[in-house]
Amino acid sequence: MASFLFKSTIIHTFLLYVMFSSDLGYPPPFVSTLGINYGQVGNNLPPPEKVLQLFSALKITKTRIYDTNPEILKSFAQSGIEIIVTVENEMMGVVINPQQAVQWVTTHIKPYFPASRITGIAVGNEIFTMNDATLIGNVVPAMVSIHQALVQLGLDSYIQVSTANSLAVLANSYPPSAGSFRQDLMGVMSQLLQFLNATRSPFWINAYPYFAYKDDPNRIPLDYVLFNPNSGMVDPYTKLHYDNMLYAQVDAVIFAAYRMGFGGVEVRVSETGWPSKGDSNEVGATIANAEIYNKNLLRRQLTNEGTPLRPNQRLEVYLFALFNEDMKPGPTSERNYGLYEPDLTMTYNVGLSSLSSTTTAASISLTSSAGEVRH
């Protein structure tokens, strides 16, 4: 009997893999570019117009901000840069009201669109892994209200509504085919996925292989989390080979969504990165590792790569973050995820080469060597 169940599981998972791998009846591959999260929790950051110059010089066409800062939205007008804005967590109880949602969109979105190319609204950030049942219960109703407001104002075909999730929404992530959501979140995850499926919006995940390595450096190979050459791992059920942890984490989320009946929802990485500095207990938080992680990820993105489970669908990724932010609370690592210092000099070189003597003139270039570590 046990043998039969095991074989049935293998067959079921194999069929699931075939289903995911097929383009038949599946949304066409989404062509995207690399984005960068533009956080603002610092007292020494450059003004938005200088940041726009940096984006333009780097040829980065997507960014995500954690509010609806009018200075940024005004400065980025006519730039063509796609912007994901955020309904702050503390606003959730307000915009759950449909009339208040219309007011929010009318005030925070409509005056800037379409001059500022707002393409997404994140309703909250990592709320489902907070210990606030009321807040958790408000997320999807708030998303529905915001979406209805967009429909009412004729903006729903241009702007997607989702929410950014911590990887901690998963109960299991290894191997990827075992991916499943936490039991206590099943109800709200079903509501979320129903909404995303109905509106053809993506599931956003904040995925940080760094955290997994920091918590268990003796068992998790550093090369595996840094995208360096390594033997990787093979999922025993799908037989898919993974040579890096980020792709394994994303595929675990895809499997978790499939188990809820929503295998067609696209998964995108709303945050990933590596800290260049940390406290004594933050193993691996070094400038060398941060440079390697982001440089290797950049190379993958520039080759239109997908995950092993969805090789024909390019994985959209937003790096965290543009700047080191000196006012962020928490451990030292939290303030040191930036590719750039507030004075616009590079924290380290991930393949961004200067085109002129000014620090705001640069372009993406693929380099064959690891490059110098820049302190």
Results as ranks from 00 to 15, higher is better:
residue 362 A to E: 06
residue 176 P to I: 13
residue 290 A to F: 09
residue 160 Q to V: 15
residue 97 N to I: 13
residue 54 L to P: 01
residue 74 K to R: 11
residue 106 T to V: 04
residue 70 P to Y: 11
residue 276 S to P: 10
residue 312 N to G: 14
residue 299 R to A: 11
residue 175 P to A: 08
residue 77 A to Q: 12
residue 323 F to V: 00
residue 327 M to Q: 15
residue 209 P to E: 02
residue 299 R to P: 02
residue 120 G to I: 10
residue 226 L to Y: 12
residue 145 S to V: 11
residue 236 P to E: 04
residue 229 P to D: 13
residue 132 D to W: 00
residue 267 V to I: 15
residue 305 E to N: 05
residue 126 E to D: 07
residue 351 G to M: 02
residue 50 K to S: 12
residue 332 T to A: 07
residue 127 I to Q: 00
residue 352 L to D: 09
residue 334 E to D: 12
residue 333 S to H: 05
residue 116 S to I: 03
residue 241 H to G: 01
residue 264 G to K: 14
residue 70 P to A: 12
residue 150 L to T: 08
residue 78 Q to F: 12
residue 141 P to H: 02
residue 162 S to H: 06
residue 147 H to F: 14
residue 216 D to Q: 13
residue 131 N to R: 05
residue 363 S to R: 10
residue 27 P to D: 05
residue 235 D to W: 04
residue 101 A to T: 10
residue 3 S to L: 15
residue 172 N to G: 00
residue 365 S to V: 09
residue 318 Y to F: 15
residue 192 L to I: 05
residue 155 L to P: 01
residue 53 Q to V: 03
residue 160 Q to S: 15
residue 297 L to C: 06
residue 129 T to Y: 05
residue 147 H to E: 11
residue 341 E to I: 04
residue 327 M to G: 03
residue 121 I to N: 09
residue 94 V to H: 09
residue 17 Y to F: 04
residue 313 Q to S: 15
residue 152 Q to S: 15
residue 173 S to K: 07
residue 18 V to G: 10
residue 140 V to E: 03
residue 371 G to R: 10
residue 360 T to G: 00
